[in-house]
């Protein structure tokens, strides 16, 4: 069972890397979300998958009897899911704001904070201070 899950983690990571390497911001976001899910599945697999009793201590007993499933990965994954979810929510809102500000989802064309490459054409919303000051560096883009 672990080996199947391990292969699944590998496929997820491969998909995530493929998506993150794209220039489209939305694809990158999807890739990151798949990557964080892969990490969660990886922790789950590292905790070993067992078919024993659930890790619940019966009433009036201090220590459970027999072998129980490992409860720690659940706690780790729960923490990681909550954190990953909140970070991803923030990143999505930021992507939306980025699109609204710069009118592009192409991360290569986002050059507001940095000067554009020599000769690079940048959508008018995404051009930075440098370009504002020095029109020679940035050819006009027809809207």
């Amino acid at each position: 069972m672990e080996s199947i899950l391990a292969i699944a983690v590998g496929i997820l990571v491969a998909c995530a890397v493929f998506l993150i390497l794209a220039r489209d911001l939305i694809r990158i976001m999807l890739g990151v979300s798949i990557l964080s899910n892969a990490a969660n599945l990886l922790i789950f697999t590292s905790g070993r998958v067992t078919r024993d009793a659930p890790p619940i201590v019966p009433e009036n007993v201090a220590v459970p009897e027999g072998v129980i499933a490992n409860p720690l990965p659940q706690a780790l994954i729960l923490t990681a899911i909550v954190i990953g979810f909140s970070l991803l929510a923030f990143a999505l809102v930021l992507s939306y704001r980025a699109f609204a500000t710069m009118r592009t989802v192409d991360v290569d064309a986002m050059r507001l904070a940095e000067p554009p490459y020599p000769g690079q054409q940048v959508p008018s919303g995404a051009a930075g201070r440098q370009a504002d000051r020095d029109p020679a560096r940035l050819p006009e883009v027809a809207e």
Binding site: A91, T101, G128, R129
Partner: peptide, 16 residues
């Protein structure tokens, strides 16, 4: 505006 652009790069790389 510049913060949004810088923020996208900062957020993505730190997330990964």
């Amino acid at each position: 505006r510049e913060q949004i652009d810088g923020g996208v790069k900062y957020v993505l790389l730190n997330l990964i």
